[in-house]
Design a protein around this nucleic acid. Structure first.
Lengths: 152, 152
DNA sequence: TATATTTGTATCGTGTACGATATTAACGCT
DNA sequence: AGCGTTAATATCGTACACGATACAAATATA
């Protein structure tokens, strides 16, 4: 059977999937020290940049749905990293605010990006490569997002 | 606080994570027709290329551990896609073989890669871009894999 | 040749992802 | 005002991921 296209090595999906998992694993030693998981760290990055967002605004920034974010925020509230409260103007809306502890975690997190960058740089990949990679992933995301939207 | 590096937009981990999830989502309509999940499809691609592998060999090819693969194979055995059997020579080893149904799924899967490729190609990304992206992801994986191995 | 160690696989617990569905509040319309 | 629709969030069920641990078979070693 002519099936070269069905080999793992021919497809772009598999390297994407593996690289994503391995990258998460590379973050783990740093996040463990803070008691965070990778998705929780993503939520914090969003809130550090802009506190007091609604659940919906967080889902839009992270491209995740409420059925993933809601329980995640619930766990983070239990950890006293953030507080959830209903908006007074619209009782449907939940506003997410960092606690003092949540704000302080930012200080601990500051060196993480540089540390990770050091991990990634090598004879195979320099900074320019990584910038290019990021750009291409951004293009890929916008294409895939558009396709997924159009299916709905 | 000087924290540009902690913004989502500055980091490469987030586009990687999002692109991977969106890519899996793009496969979903095709895999749904076959009753498969994306990781199950990965296992099948490995076995279509080389039937009769051990559990360990599958984990090595997919960069996953047995605690992910074992239950996954169990579900696929229940679906009668494959059979697991202990090796006679070494009773610790489990050999995974496709059933007739498992082999036949390959025919259904053949058009998937081309269909996906068509989805990805756009004014933003041409075939050359995708090849370059795949190459860079491969480099990234080998760097991350080496780092993760060295931690052990 | 007993026993310690290694190897291959599986199980358990926790935390995502995500489709489907539920719930409640706001809004539009007559 | 009553009521269908939409919007924002949450819940449920299933399937990964993965660290920690268990367990049995094979191997190494005293």
């Amino acid at each position: 059977m002519d099936d070269k296209q069905l080999q793992l090595s021919s497809q772009i999906c598999f390297p994407l999937y593996s690289a994503s998992r391995l990258m998460t694993k590379a973050y783990k030693p740093y996040l463990d020290k803070m008691g965070l998981t990778y998705p929780q760290y993503l939520v914090l990055m969003v809130l550090w940049e802009n506190d007091g967002l609604t659940v919906n605004q967080i889902t839009e920034k992270l491209l995740l749905n409420t059925n993933t974010i809601s329980p995640l925020l619930k766990r983070m509230e239990k950890m006293e990293i953030l507080k959830r409260s209903r908006s007074g103007e619209d009782e449907r809306i939940v506003i997410v605010r960092l606690t003092e502890m949540g704000k302080q975690l930012k200080t601990k997190a500051l060196p993480i990006p540089d540390n990770l960058l050091m991990t990634l740089l090598s004879d195979k990949l320099d900074l320019e490569d990584l910038m290019k990679l990021k750009g291409m992933l951004g293009d890929l995301i916008s294409v895939l997002n558009a396709k997924n939207e159009s299916i709905k």
